[in-house]
């Protein structure tokens, strides 16, 4: 009942792959600059770009907007890559960190923090969320280890853990007061509000390292596209590969949701958009997936903080508003 997620239709070959990737990079940079320039007050580009490069001192750009945009980039890229790895590993186009329980594990941690330790410094909330996500990942590994992390087993135990953690979150929300549950709901939708540059100082390098790690694993990822029988037939021991990919994917998702809340759909949509837009070349797909995830979240956050001024709405709301219709457009275009 599993399915090769790699047999998605190829994009048309009108544009060669390097050109597509280069174009995507330029668009990403343009979106990044735009997201810093647009906001409550609109800033001219000749003020934004030098400040982004660190040539000028600018409070709005350097303290308020750039950290938030950069956080959106790293969180989006991490979620996109995590989804990409999981869809490869499980050979299932529906796989994403939200569906195997990692995001909902983080949610339990974060909501528990809001309910139990509301008085503590908010600095601790990402740490609680991270511990929650790691607990979920450890449970997933522990419960499937005896079956050598077989694909079907990981899928089944994953959906089960996801339901379980979601039930615990609901339970916590029911037992808590309404003010705390309002805070929790914002976290559960996913928001980049309150980003600061201290986090970015190590989250951005971590994202780059994760992307490089994925690129180094391209041979292992190619092996995962084969069926279990083919893998055995080739005499490959894939258990270490599966363990490595699963841990990497879980760690990326855990990092991302710890800082931005339970943002859904990025991990699911970014890999699919990538497959529709870029040729099958694996390193290109990985870089592209990171970029597309980053762009999705950047645009979603931009929409959240500008469309309904003066309100600053959680970015999680707009991820599906931007990704969904775009994906439908791509699917509809293929029908002809």
């Amino acid at each position: 009942m599993t399915q090769a997620s790699t047999n998605a239709p190829m994009p048309s070959t009108k544009w060669p792959s390097h050109l597509r990737l280069a174009l995507l990079m330029i668009i990403s940079l343009a979106i990044l600059v735009m997201s810093v320039a647009i906001g409550h007050s609109r800033l001219p580009l000749d003020r934004v770009i030098p400040a982004m490069l660190g040539l000028n001192e600018d409070f709005i750009v350097q303290t308020l907007r750039l950290p938030r945009s950069l956080l959106a980039c790293s969180v989006g890229a991490l979620l996109g890559l995590s989804g990409f790895l999981l869809q490869r590993l499980l050979r299932n186009p529906l796989a994403s960190p939200d569906i195997v329980g990692i995001t909902s594990g983080a949610s339990v941690g974060a909501v528990l923090f809001i309910v139990v330790a509301a008085g503590a410094a908010p600095f601790w909330q990402p740490i609680w969320a991270f511990i929650g996500a790691l607990t979920a990942a450890a449970a997933l590994l522990g419960l499937t280890w005896k079956q050598r992390l077989s694909v079907t087993r990981v899928v089944l135990v994953g959906i089960c853990l996801n339901s379980g953690f979601a039930a615990i979150t609901t339970l916590l929300l029911v037992m808590s007061e309404s003010t705390t549950s309002a805070m929790a709901y914002t976290w559960l939708t996913g928001t980049l509000y309150g980003a600061n540059s201290a986090v970015n100082h190590w989250l951005i390098p971590a994202t780059v390292v994760a992307l490089l790690g994925c690129l180094l694993l391209k041979r292992e990822l190619a092996v995962l596209a084969l069926s279990d029988e083919q893998q055995v037939g080739l005499g490959l021991s894939t258990l270490p590969i599966r363990l490595l990919i699963l841990c990497l994917s879980a760690a990326m998702a855990a990092l991302a949701v710890s800082f931005a809340g339970a943002i859904g759909f990025v991990g699911l949509l970014a890999p699919h958009l990538t497959r529709q837009l870029l040729p099958k070349h694996l390193p290109g797909q990985l870089i592209g997936c990171a970029l597309i995830g980053a762009n999705l979240l950047l645009l979603a956050d931009l929409a959240g903080r500008t469309l309904f001024l003066p309100r600053d709405l959680p970015a999680g709301i707009f991820v599906s508003a931007i990704g969904g219709p775009f994906f439908i457009f791509l699917l509809a275009r293929q029908r002809r």
Binding site: Q3, N7, A8, P93, L94, F265, L268, L269, H272, F308, L313, I317, F318, S320, A321, G323, G324, P325, F327, I328, L331
Partner: peptide, 25 residues
């Protein structure tokens, strides 16, 4: 094809969710 049902389902689900959230806002 099963794959296209899955993809279309994910996309439409995302779009309808977004529209509902828009109404709620």
């Amino acid at each position: 094809s099963p794959l296209r049902i899955i993809l279309a389902g994910a996309a439409c689900g995302a779009m309808f969710t977004a529209l509902t959230q828009g109404i709620l806002i």
